[in-house]
Write a protein that binds this DNA or RNA. Sequence first.
RNA 1: GCUCCUAUCGUCUAGAGGCCUAGGACGGAGCCCUCUCAAGGCUUAAACCCGGGUUCGAAUCCCGGUAGGAGCGCCA
Length: 476
Amino acid sequence: MTVTTRFAPSPTGYLHIGGARTALFSYLYAKRHNGTYLLRIEDTDRERSTDEAVQAIFDGLKWLGIESDVNPPVFQTQRYDRYREVIAQMLAAGTAYHCYASKAELDEMRAAQMARKEKPRYDGRWRPEAGKVLPPPPEGVAPVVRFRNPSAGVVVVDDIIKGAISFDNSELDDLIIARGDGNPTYNFCVVVDDWDMGVTHVVRGDDHVNNTPRQINILKALGATPPVYGHVPMILGADGVKLSKRHGAVSVIEYRALGFMPEALLNYLVRLGWSYGDQELFTRDEMIKLFDLERVQKAPARFDMEKAIWVNHQFLKSADPAIVAPEFDWHLRRVGVDPANGPAVVPVIEAQRERCKTLVEMAEKSKFFYAELDGYNDKDAAKHLGADSALLLDELRAALANLGDWTTLTLHETVNGFAEAKGLGLGKIAQPIRVAIAGMAITPPIDVTLFLLGRERTLARLQAAVAYSAAKVGGG
RNA sequence: GCUCCUAUCGUCUAGAGGCCUAGGACGGAGCCCUCUCAAGGCUUAAACCCGGGUUCGAAUCCCGGUAGGAGCGCCA
């Protein structure tokens, strides 16, 4: 049997980081076993589901590169006929029954149970039982349909991550599978869908473990073989509290804005709750080859932004710059610069990636290649642009203006030779140059920077810096 | 309250009864290198929740406690 997994988000908001990891695990497991990975949109809550959220989930998954093997994905709202059909079957078979208890009645029942310190649950008042006489259905009440859960025995969930978990059927009440309006509910749709779609492994958040025994019971009532379950623990914020807005970035797409490469985020996520010995860095192929649900951690993990950024940096440093280019391009535009108005993006990435942990940082530090300076950094100018540097920069400008070939090699020789001739350490001249051409004292090696910036811009900026320094000195 | 789950450095983790004087990584501290910022190299501090068992031997197995978490909807 071929392995089939699915990721089944409900479109009530953006794709959050925990969901992304669940999707990743699900995807990886399927790929690892040459299986199929599916996306299913659980939109049975008509009130809260929105088209924008559906789109946000698609966008997030697409950016991460976790794409469904079957398109378009299944939307539960398109399967209502099928759900109704199964419900009718269950009603006929006696594995489900109508319940006429009103919401108010149920609320009252739960309140009373809580008051008695009991676990709140449906008391089975409309459950047919041998020898039991049910009251006549009240007038004008649209009944819900409840699953007739076995009242005795135990259900064992053989969880691939958590191990065997057993539940007493006596602890499980008869859950509603169809609402008063006839629409099916989540726990029921999941079961039917996983069954129809041939899902062999259900990978989902561990907030679902308590639903699992009931789902298994429904599957059994339907004569289906339950899938293998794997419940992955949740991701916590750095403070150990459930991830939320106040932790900053929760939505996957926010990580793009923060300057992460999708592959790097995936790499961080896969190592959060899963490990392969001491290995920290994985390519996508390695993840697929090595991933294993059995090695997923049972306890929740905290999201550590520092480490995520480190992983991103490692990726930036070692990746093929051509892969980084489109994202970098996107970030350059985002900081208000036109990538066409300067050097090719690939060599800039190569020059910058050692010193930039995120693409936001890289874009900020590379702006000067693509747009005119909007002034100098105050501190750097104060420190490096003065009377003496004005003289040096002016002389250097003249030397560079006469340079034949504008290459990193000739630039290196010229600048180093210049410093040597002046009896200065390279630092004494490199820093003023940096501030002059980049507006700040942080750039890649000076030869590479000058080369990428080009002759025209370099000479113009040196001249401007000389004028600036002179004016500053002149003005006292 | 009830049911279920979890527990190794600050964080992510290795650890399948002796290989543990508990390893790696991020972050921290220090040193080296250096044209800036970085990167890199080296060194270093830092953990088995507690208590009982089982065993010649327990971070590893069992029980209890404690602490955290999840669920208990005509939400998903």
